[in-house]
């Protein structure tokens, strides 16, 4: 069974490798045998350091890869990143969109520019990366591919002060379904991981709100990033060849509650 899940020979790009989930997914894909390029996105200044440290971990596993910082919502940046991935790794079969711009503010105080920024980065970014990678994966002679968009339970449930963020996350879920249908016969699968509250997430908030959250969660604890990454290995692998257009929720049962 271990061999069936193996990602040997696959080339991956993980965008958002400076956040906890993206990093865990990048490392898990490499452990499962893939070569993995990692990219980090604005606005944090120390992202490049994080990307480099993630790439070091991938190299330590004897896999190929590189690190690059991009602007997630910039077409030229994203296109160039896909080109570089193809050039350095020799191709691309796996794309993971894990970058995340957290944002929480009462709607009456939210500027339209802020709204646009959240939608551009969290929804526009995955679209750009899917489009550029999809063009490659759908081209003649390409073995196809698997795209994984990491979304949040806030794409399925609303949250006060989350109008922009929740809207973008919901958009990612339906971007996933629509692309899956469009590309189903082209050998490109598109799925999402619906991540629950996870250690290292910016929106896990201060100590007090975190304690409240933990009381509410069925597990009484947040997810560890590696608990999200396991599903990414399955979705990336050919064992899930018949799975497309789905959101796999990894949220400890949070969405099952009334």
């Amino acid at each position: 069974m271990r061999d069936k899940f193996s990602l040997d020979g696959k080339r991956a790009l993980v965008i958002g490798a400076s956040n906890a989930i993206g990093r865990a997914i990048a490392v898990a894909l490499a452990e499962a045998g893939a070569d993995v390029a990692v990219a980090t996105t604005t606005p944090l200044k120390d992202e490049e350091t994080a990307a480099n440290s993630c790439a070091n971990e991938i190299w330590a596993l004897d896999r190929k890869g590189f690190a690059q910082a991009i602007e997630a919502a910039d077409e030229a940046d994203v296109n160039a990143l896909i080109e570089r991935t193809v050039a350095e790794l020799g191709g691309i079969e796996l794309l993971v969109n894990a970058h995340d711009l957290p944002f929480a503010k009462p709607a009456p105080e939210t500027d339209f520019a802020e709204w646009r920024r959240v939608i551009d980065v969290n929804l526009g970014g995955p679209f750009l990366a899917c489009r550029a990678a999809g063009q490659r994966m759908l081209s003649d002679g390409h073995p196809g591919g698997s795209i994984i968009n990491v979304a949040s339970v806030l794409g399925e449930r609303g949250l006060a002060n989350g109008a922009a963020y929740c809207s973008a996350q919901a958009g990612v879920l339906n971007l996933t379904r629509a692309l899956a249908l469009e590309w189903a016969r082209g050998g490109v699968r598109v799925n999402a991981i619906g991540a629950g509250w996870t250690e290292g997430m910016a929106m896990a908030g201060d100590d007090e709100s975190r304690a409240k959250l933990e009381r509410y969660l069925p597990y009484k604890r947040l997810a560890r990033p590696d608990e999200i990454a396991g599903i990414a290995v399955y979705l990336a692998s050919d064992v899930s060849a018949y799975l497309t257009g789905q959101v796999v929720w990894v949220e400890g049962g949070a969405l099952s509650h009334v």
Partner: peptide, 9 residues
């Protein structure tokens, strides 16, 4: 153990 946080889904 790959799905230790997946529940009710």
């Amino acid at each position: 153990g790959l799905t230790s946080y997946m529940n009710g889904q």
